[in-house]
């Protein structure tokens, strides 16, 4: 019994690392993704092409490769980042690209009538985006954003290979030491709880935004 408690305590510490990666990645990649999306639909061609290239690279290669690349390649060119920062850099770059695609599609789904109405009322492009387009876009993209966010919870387990003590790594360490599979089951339950809470939160958000629907 004591043993189980000890295991759970260790795993809660691992969960903390997992949640840290998750939260920081989410908080940074959403706004960066939005900026990248605005860049992708910008009238400045170089900016548009640059963002397209960025999204293409990030979505076209495995996140695992990106993690390893940032982790091993940056020190080789003399950039020393703490482990967690390196992992975060890769996660944020990767997730921002996915979010950018979702945001771009969401923005482009909004008819030009909204832009025209805003323009005839004297609103500038930034005002129109901030006040009219982006708030409507957010509602449309909640389901895909919710999916990606749940993926992120699970993807955090990739930092396992960077020898950081996240939930999955802690679980494996204990399993190897004690020849007992319980930690894997507990890890599974922990991941389920996290994704369950997220799913619930997004449902709430969607309901909130649905209030102006027919």
């Amino acid at each position: 019994m004591d043993n189980l408690l000890h295991t759970i305590t260790l795993m809660l510490e691992g969960t903390q690392v997992t949640l840290e990666i998750f939260c920081i990645t989410l908080v940074l990649s959403l706004p960066i993704g939005l900026l990248a999306a605005l860049g992708r639909i910008s009238s400045l061609k170089p900016l548009r092409l640059l963002m397209e290239f960025y999204v293409w690279i990030m979505r076209g290669t495995p996140l695992m490769l990106q993690l390893l690349f940032v982790y091993f390649a940056l020190p080789m060119v003399g950039i020393m980042l703490p482990d967690i920062a390196a992992a975060l850099l890769a996660f944020v770059l990767n997730y921002a690209a996915y979010f950018a695609e979702i945001f771009r599609a969401g923005i482009q789904a909004i008819g030009r009538g909204q832009y025209e109405a805003a323009k005839t009322l004297g609103m500038t492009y930034p005002q129109t985006m901030r006040r009219i387009i982006i708030p409507q876009m957010i509602r449309h993209v909640l389901p895909p954003i919710s999916n990606e966010t749940i993926n992120l919870v699970k993807d955090t387990s990739l930092i396992y290979i960077l020898a950081m003590n996240d939930l999955l790594r802690v679980a494996r360490t204990i399993v190897q030491r004690e020849f007992d599979m319980t930690p894997f089951v507990i890890a599974g339950v922990f991941y389920l709880v996290m994704t369950f809470v997220l799913t619930w939160a997004f449902k709430k958000l969607e309901a909130h935004y649905a209030k102006y629907d027919q």
């Binding site: 009538g113 909204q114 025209e116 109405a117 009322l121 004297g122 009219i132 708030p135 509602r139 102006y212």
Partner: peptide, 17 residues
């Protein structure tokens, strides 16, 4: 153009407001 206003066939109200 500040002295002009426009009404569209499709209304184009802001649905989130």
């Amino acid at each position: 153009l500040a002295c002009t206003g426009m009404v569209f066939q499709q209304f184009n109200l802001f649905p989130h407001m």
